[in-house]
Amino acid sequence: MERMTVTVTIYDVAREAGVSMATVSRVVNNNPNVKPQTRKKVFEAIERLGYRPNAVARGLASKKTTTVGVVIPDISNSIFAEVARGIEDIANMYHYNIILSNADKKKEKEIRVINTLLEKQVDGLLFMGGVVSEDHINAFRTSSVPVVLCGTADDQNIMPSVDIDHERAAFDAVQLLIQNGHRSIGMISGPLQDPANGFSRYQGYKKALEEAGIELDEDYIRLGNYRYESGIDATDYFLKLPNRPTAIFSATDEMAIGAIHKIQDEGLRVPEDMSVMSIDNIRMASMVRPQLTTVAQPMYDIGAVSMRLLTKLMNKEAMEMTQVVLPHEIIKRSSVAPR
């Protein structure tokens, strides 16, 4: 026999508490103009009846859903988990709910997810991704709610954004290798179409070499896809060169860990035979042996600051800046040694 479920309405709560439906509505929506004893009576009725306010109906009435859409490029990548944690903590603080949507780093899916979230009447949108194309900008411009880029930025700084200076982070990483006596430095880059993790970090690598008077060698550059396996493949290529590099700079920790394991699989040692340096500071960076020297992105802060910026935009608060650049930090561990 099927169990029948009865939907409890605001009318039922009002009758149970002996108040008007308007009073119940004020209590549910945290309106301060309700006496404490009346508020207590309404909450007790809500608990007895198991009433759950209809978020959709409340949204229609207030023209707000207290919901924020978040587009995440790759939900399986641990680095985005820390960003999402920062977003959620600030969202909870300001009483917003999060809808997290994975886009698989595919432009078509990103645009589709953006439009789907906007159709759900979210109050704001956070976009975590790599390439911010003209199609993305057009989708954001047609939005009736604020949009903040999280961990990325558009080329012309049109959109509000929170990120680090990726070029400077890469420059500092390569400079550390140079200060340790390395002159032959291979780079495992991300896709150069990616303005942040790809092109900007590649530019930082080039500038550090140029400033040190080291000629750029195209044989020392391999493109990866941010994944562990592409770090292995790139390192396999470097190890087969007649004059292999003495150090590898990887655009991401995950590729760097692949590099370390490939070096070790070939019977060589890190950092004695080859140093490895990267950017991100994911949890695995301190778990791998030797522990990975890396440039730490403040991933939690990127998420938290992005969400706080979005709350200000949603509430039309005054702001001094809408493009925020957070500091990075070199974390020295044991994968880099003097040459």
Rank of each mutant, 00 (worst) to 15 (best):
G69L: 11
V68T: 06
N31E: 01
V56H: 11
F171G: 01
E167W: 01
R183H: 13
T246S: 15
N138W: 08
V28K: 08
T293A: 07
N54H: 09
H95L: 08
K206V: 11
E229Q: 13
A304G: 07
N197G: 14
A17I: 00
A22I: 04
N180M: 15
K332F: 14
V147F: 07
I221E: 08
R333C: 14
A208Q: 02
L209S: 09
M284V: 00
L313W: 08
S101Y: 04
I214L: 13
R244G: 06
G190P: 08
L149N: 13
I279L: 03
S161Q: 06
E229M: 11
G130K: 14
I99K: 02
G50P: 03
N115L: 13
R333H: 13
G129H: 10
R52C: 10
D194G: 01
G258K: 04
A251Q: 03
A91V: 06
I90A: 06
I214W: 05
H136Y: 10
V174H: 01
A247W: 01
E119M: 14
E82N: 07
I87C: 12
V70L: 12
I214K: 02
V132N: 14
T252V: 11
P338T: 14
N225F: 07
D265L: 05
S275Y: 05
Y94P: 00
E119V: 02
M319F: 13
E2N: 10
S25G: 07
P195H: 13
I75W: 07
P191F: 08
V276M: 05
P338R: 12
G86R: 12
I331M: 15
K109A: 01
H136E: 05
I330A: 08
D217G: 01
I302H: 05
D154E: 12
L326M: 09
H328A: 09
E272C: 03
V145S: 06
